[in-house]
Design a protein around this nucleic acid. Structure first.
Lengths: 131, 131
DNA sequence: AACCTAAATGAAAAATATTTTCGATTAGTG
DNA sequence: CACTAATCGAAAATATTTTTCATTTAGGTT
C-alpha cells in the first residue's frame, strides 16, 4: 500500500473526507522530500492556497506529515518516509540518507515514560563541495 | 568559557561588532532551549524587534544558532547545546534529553563526502501523560 | 581622550505569509 | 437521488518578516 493510500485510509477512519484536494496535496508530498509550501503548491496548482494550508494542518494533526525547518523556512514531509538529513552549514544544501544508525525502540531515555514511534536525524557539517 | 562568550569571540573574529543588543539576544538564547521568537523577545525587551531578527540571522550564518520547527512555529537554539528532542504527537509537548546514542563522526554515510560536525535527533511518539 | 568611519540600530513602511470568515460546493451516507 | 455536515475558495483580516533610511555606536586611530 502506498503511503498516500494509507494516509487516505487513516483520514477516512477518523471521519475526515477524502477530497480530491487532499489527495492532490498528499501526492504532491509523496513526490519529494522536505518541500516548501511553494513547491507543494506548484505540484497541485488546482488546489486553493487556503486548502493547502488546511490540509497540511490536518495531516500534521493526524501525525502523517511533519513540518520542519532545516535553516531556510518551513518545510513539510510525509512522516512515514524514513530518512534523515545532511545539512551543509556552508551552502545550505540539504540531502537525504536512508541507512539509519538507530533503533527507534531504544531511543527515548529509559525512565522518561516516553514511547517512541519514529525519529528523525539531522547531521550538520560540510558537503563534499564546500569541505 | 560560556557559550555566550565563545559566540562573542567568534563574532569578533569575523569582524562583527559585539553590541549590547547581540549580547542580550545571546543571553536570551542561552537561558532556555528551543525558544520561539516571542520568548526570545520577552527575554530581551530592550532590543528592537528588527535587531532580534537580524541577530538571529547573523548567528545562524555563523553556525551558532539553529532554527528548527518541531511542529509549532519556528524556534531557535544555540547550536552548541548538545541535546535532543522528544516530541509528543498527541499534546505537542517538547522535552529534551542529553544522553546521546550517536557518534557524530560515524554519522554521515560513507562515500557521501560529507563531513559531520554536529547533529540533532528528534524522537516522535507519546509522552508519559498521553500514552 | 576626542575623533573617524564602517557597521549596527530602530521606527516606520513595505512585503510576505498565514489565518479567519462566510457563502457556495461536495463527499459520503441512507 | 436527496440530505447534511464537512469542506472549499475568495476576500479580508492578522501576523510575521524584510526593507528602507536617518541616526547612533563599537572599535580602531590619532
Amino acid at each position: 500500500m502506498s503511503s498516500v493510500e494509507s494516509a487516505i485510509g487513516k483520514m477516512r477512519g477518523r471521519g475526515y473526507k477524502a477530497t480530491p484536494q487532499r489527495l492532490a496535496v498528499l501526492e504532491a508530498l509523496a513526490s519529494e522530500q522536505h518541500q516548501s509550501l511553494e513547491e507543494i503548491k506548484g505540484r497541485c496548482p488546482e488546489v486553493g492556497l487556503v486548502t493547502v494550508y488546511r490540509t497540511l494542518d490536518l495531516l500534521g494533526e493526524l501525525g502523517l506529515v511533519r513540518r520542519l525547518d532545516l535553516g531556510d523556512g518551513p518545510r513539510y514531509e510525509l512522516a512515514e518516509n524514513h530518512h534523515h538529513h545532511l545539512i551543509c552549514e556552508s551552502c545550505g544544501d540539504i540531502s537525504e540518507f536512508e541507512e539509519c544508525p538507530l533503533n527507534t525502540d531504544r531511543l527515548a531515555p529509559s525512565g522518561s515514560g516516553f514511547v517512541a514511534r519514529s525519529h528523525s536525524i539531522e547531521v550538520y557539517g560540510y558537503c563534499a563541495g564546500c569541505r
